Amino acid sequence: MNGGWLWWVGGGLLLGIAEMISLDLIFLMLAGGAIAGAVANALGASIPVQIIVAAGVAVVLLFALRPWLLRHLRTRTTLVETNAAALVGRTAVVLAPTTDAGGRVKLAGEVWSARADRAGAVFRPGDEVLVSRIDGATAVVIAEQDAPRM
């Protein structure tokens, strides 16, 4: 018995490690093809047959199993906003007069530079405003009554 199947398994393991880095399920499907090549080798198939089996199984996994897995993962995993995206829609308290040119607000326990969403809007210290978006390191704010109703 030759050790050719070990090369296939080794390749499959390397592809599995690459999958852990990329997390897009492509390398995992290729690793499945490599394991199929190892099985073909263990059954005594010639090298061209092993390559055809590995490529065929990888293609079937890529086009049949991967889309189903991605769809399944996306429906089961809820999206949790993090970092700046998690601050959109939150209430902030104005610390310094805030206009469309600039100002300061306290948002999520931190002091942020801020600006009003529209020209002519002026928010005074103590006013409560809503964050409509984050633009770089600046919170763009609107009056609570101007917030769109859900």
Rank of each mutant, 00 (worst) to 15 (best):
4 G>M: 12
5 W>L: 15
6 L>M: 15
7 W>F: 09
9 V>Q: 04
16 G>W: 02
17 I>S: 09
18 A>M: 13
20 M>Y: 11
23 L>T: 00
26 I>K: 07
28 L>M: 11
29 M>K: 02
34 A>H: 04
38 A>G: 13
39 V>T: 12
40 A>Q: 09
41 N>V: 14
41 N>T: 15
42 A>N: 00
45 A>D: 12
48 P>S: 13
49 V>C: 01
50 Q>M: 13
50 Q>D: 12
62 L>V: 08
67 P>C: 15
75 T>N: 14
77 T>G: 06
80 V>N: 05
84 A>Q: 14
84 A>N: 13
86 A>M: 09
87 L>N: 05
90 R>T: 15
90 R>H: 14
90 R>D: 10
92 A>S: 00
93 V>I: 12
93 V>Q: 05
94 V>H: 05
95 L>A: 07
95 L>N: 02
98 T>E: 10
99 T>K: 04
101 A>W: 02
102 G>S: 06
105 V>G: 05
105 V>M: 08
106 K>T: 05
106 K>P: 01
107 L>K: 03
109 G>P: 03
110 E>D: 12
113 S>Y: 02
115 R>V: 07
116 A>M: 09
116 A>P: 07
117 D>T: 10
118 R>S: 14
121 A>S: 13
121 A>N: 14
122 V>D: 06
128 E>Y: 06
128 E>L: 10
128 E>M: 11
137 A>N: 15
142 I>Y: 02
143 A>D: 14
146 D>R: 06
